[in-house]
Design a protein around this nucleic acid. Sequence first.
RNA 1: GGAGGGAUGGCAGAGCGGACGAAUGCACCGGUCUUGAAAACCGGCGUGGGGCGACUCACCGUGGGUUCAAAUCCCACUCCCUCCGCCA
Length: 433
Amino acid sequence: MIDLTLLRRETEKVRHMLARRGVSVEQVDELLALDIRHRELLARAEEIRAEVKELSRLVGDARRSGDTARADELTARSRERGDEERHAAAEADTVAREVRELHLMIPNLPADDAPDGRSEDDNVEIRQWWPGMDEGSPFPEFAEHQRVAHWDIGAELGILDLEAGAQLAGSMFPLYRGDGARLLRALTAFALDAHFDAYEEIRPPSVALTETMMSTGHLPKSRDDMYAIERDDLWAIPTAEVPLTSMHRGDILALEDLPIRMTAATQCFRREAGAAGRDTRGLLRVHEFEKVELFAYCTPEQAIDEQMNILSRAEQLLRALALPYRVLDLCCGDLGSASARTFDLEVLSPGVNRWLEVSSVSWFRDYQTRRANVRYRTAEGTTAFTHTVNGSALAWARIWAALVETYRQPDGTVVLPDVLAPYLGGRTVLQRR
RNA sequence: GGAGGGAUGGCAGAGCGGACGAAUGCACCGGUCUUGAAAACCGGCGUGGGGCGACUCACCGUGGGUUCAAAUCCCACUCCCUCCGCCA
């Protein structure tokens, strides 16, 4: 949620910032008007309530001193005012709900240096990397044997069985087998080990309460993109960001404990409603995938460094895997609604010949912690909302695809980078068994 | 799934209808004393909303209800503990 106090005090500025990402002035002004109305109603209800409390006190005094007539008279008056109070409070509540409903739907304020733009076409590429770049090699030319789509390689080597996945759970639920399944396990272990020095490893539940989904901003806005387990009021998590953001829900953190860094490997579930038919072949877009996430709670001052740290770690993994990639600075129009600034990492996968998004590194300011009520104690002794940042390092389904396509040999086998050897029992060759 | 017990400030723990936002102890932060520290003593010490402010309102697991008045009474739910059943 954005800061309503800021909206009241610097309305013009907030209007402008939200306009950059396509929120209409009318919507902002509606929120402002509702907020003003709510505060008026609240003030009135509280005034009457203060009277009722005072009268009740006097009733107590009168009864104790045995003045029954006076007590009865005061009780009658208090009852009358009490009725009025109930009315006023109910009215204030109704408007409060309207404010909250609208407030929850307003996206975050973009960072000042997030680029202008309306859609993904306006994202700014800030750098590319490829193996050998530092030594002056040009961007890699891919050979014919690398121009095979991962779904064909998967079928050929018997390491990816999309038909079996579809039979069990429907399309876009991949099933990996043999070396393909092992590769996935290796990638997770490889990444968690890489982050172990600075990030606490967490294994959160794969499902979350509605309240938990609200905190990150996934609800109510993206409700149709989530899998729901209605009977138990649970939701399948779309990313580890959801449980991690709520780890300290309601807490006041000590300044010296910040930043709090965590990493988690989880399954991620996404309905991908509205994405039907778009880039959905093979592993390009799936309903369930595994991902290692990096996350930090931090102060506003630490936020940019923490975000850069996550971005750099995600890049280090891609470099270790020697996969060519580019970094995009998302424009205001393409930012996720909770994010103030996001960098996407995309790898070029030669078989499908496309840039695949494998990481998204975001700074949320206090948008999520305002919802989750996560604060910290400042040096001045006051409380302030904590900032959150997070990013994938990395999302495996598309990395899996990029790896098998990039490292496919002329003989049809796949030879993976040596860094993975320790996690593959020393054997980096994927072949038909 | 069944039967009991519980949930109060950072922690421990009182309060069980009337000035209770809440005793007390510990912890913590100031100060006095001390060469310094400890002890002792004095003072402070939850969070949030509204208002320029005096001030006011809300919060005792959550949500409803009763009452002039609820931490306190009633109902429902959640979580924790003990026991039984089932179970990887």
